[in-house]
Amino acid sequence: MKRRDFMKNTIVAIAGASVPLSALEFIDPREVLAANPEIHWAFLINTYSCVGCGFCVKACKTENDIPFEANASRTWVERYVYTKDDRRYIDSPKSAQYGFTDARIDLGEHLGYQDVDPNNVGKAFFVPKLCNHCATPSCTQVCPVGATYKTDSGPVLVDRSWCIGCGYCIMACPFGARFFHPVLKVVDKCTFCYHRITKGVETACVNACPFGARKMCNIKDINDPVTQIILNERVGVLKDEFGTKPQAFYIGLASEVR
């Protein structure tokens, strides 16, 4: 066989084989469903409605067995206070699991508490936070053993029986959503209450919020009223510069919130 013929035949063989082989890709039903899922969960937070009661944090910790004594939480609420002379204070004491019962700002162990004159407050607001269940998460990318993964319906989960506890995902998350479970010694994070939403029940935090600041929706269902808000109103996401495409949308997001 001449070299020219050999090359010709090789190209023909590869081209011929690729058609039936690619069919194997097409007919995998899981991949088809993953590419066009019927459900994709998204979260909507209205910062105007949040009053910082911390019920969501309490409900989350109770529902998901995160010890109240532990200084880490799957969800938390941040308080932003700007004075008229342009001083900026942010805090989230104990992840706001008991709400904001103190008017003073918690500046950490070294600096203690800061008094703010109520007459000097320019603007102040609360921002609830949780895992953004990004569409292209950096945390699942860096897991060396594939113990954290994105489900077909959106939520990013952790396999507690497979996590080796290296902490790479914690480092990779731009939102600080992950931590080590103090008892189980594996990485823990918000699951969008996967055990509840897959049974048609709303998440613990959404359920606990008395002001409707937290809402959840199936972003594929355009008739869903919450989806309507995300599609029609002006909403923002946190830290879009990292390219992770967060799926938690905010109404009234200030640029100072990071």
Binding site: E78, D91, S92, H110, L111, I170, F175, F179
Partner: peptide, 18 residues
């Protein structure tokens, strides 16, 4: 009850809870 890392970390000003 200490979260991993809490024993040797001292926070100052606003640091995310986790």
């Amino acid at each position: 009850m200490h979260v991993h890392g809490e024993l040797w970390t001292v926070k100052e000003l606003f640091v995310l809870p986790n």
